[in-house]
C-alpha cells in the first residue's frame, strides 16, 4: 500500500494504492487518521485500491469516528466494484460518506 497526499483548496486528498488489509492496516491507520485527528477535511482517493478487508474497514471506521469527534470530515471516492461490495455488505456505505468521483467528494467537503 502506498499513500501520496496533496492539498487542494483547504482539503487534503490521500491517494491510496494497493491493498488495505491485515498486513498494511497499521501503516494505513497511521497515515489515514493523522489529519482527521486534527480536525482537517480529508478525501480518500480509492481508485487504485484493489482490496479492502475487515482490517481495512476498521481503519476507515476509525478515520470516520475521529473526524466526527474532532469536527473534521472524511469522504471516500472512486471505489472499485469489489471494494464497493465490501462496503455494502458491511453496511459501511451508510455510515461513511462515499462519492463517485473527486469532484463530488470535494463538494461534500465544501471545497
Amino acid at each position: 500500500m502506498k499513500v501520496t497526499t496533496e492539498a487542494k483548496g483547504g482539503v487534503l486528498i490521500h491517494r491510496i494504492s494497493g491493498r488495505i488489509d491485515t498486513a498494511t492496516s497499521p501503516e494505513a491507520e497511521g497515515k489515514l487518521t493523522a489529519e482527521v485527528k486534527q480536525g482537517k477535511r480529508v478525501a480518500l482517493d480509492m481508485n487504485a485500491v484493489a482490496y479492502v478487508s475487515s482490517a481495512g474497514l476498521r481503519v476507515v471506521l476509525m478515520a470516520a469516528k475521529l473526524a466526527k469527534a474532532n469536527a473534521g470530515a472524511v469522504v471516500l471516492f472512486g471505489l472499485q466494484p469489489t471494494v464497493r461490495e465490501v462496503f455494502a455488505i458491511s453496511g459501511f456505505d451508510r455510515v461513511v460518506a462515499i462519492r463517485e468521483d473527486e469532484a463530488a467528494a470535494l463538494a461534500v467537503l465544501g471545497s
Binding site: 478487508s53 475487515s54 474497514l57 476498521r58 471506521l61 470516520a64 469516528k65 466526527k68 465490501v86 455488505i89 458491511s90 453496511g91 459501511f92 455510515v95 461513511v96
Partner: peptide
Amino acid sequence: GLDEREVGGLGMLL
C-alpha cells in the same frame, strides 16, 4: 450509526 459501529464480527460476515 457511526458512533455505535464496531468492527468485531465483520470478517465472518464478509
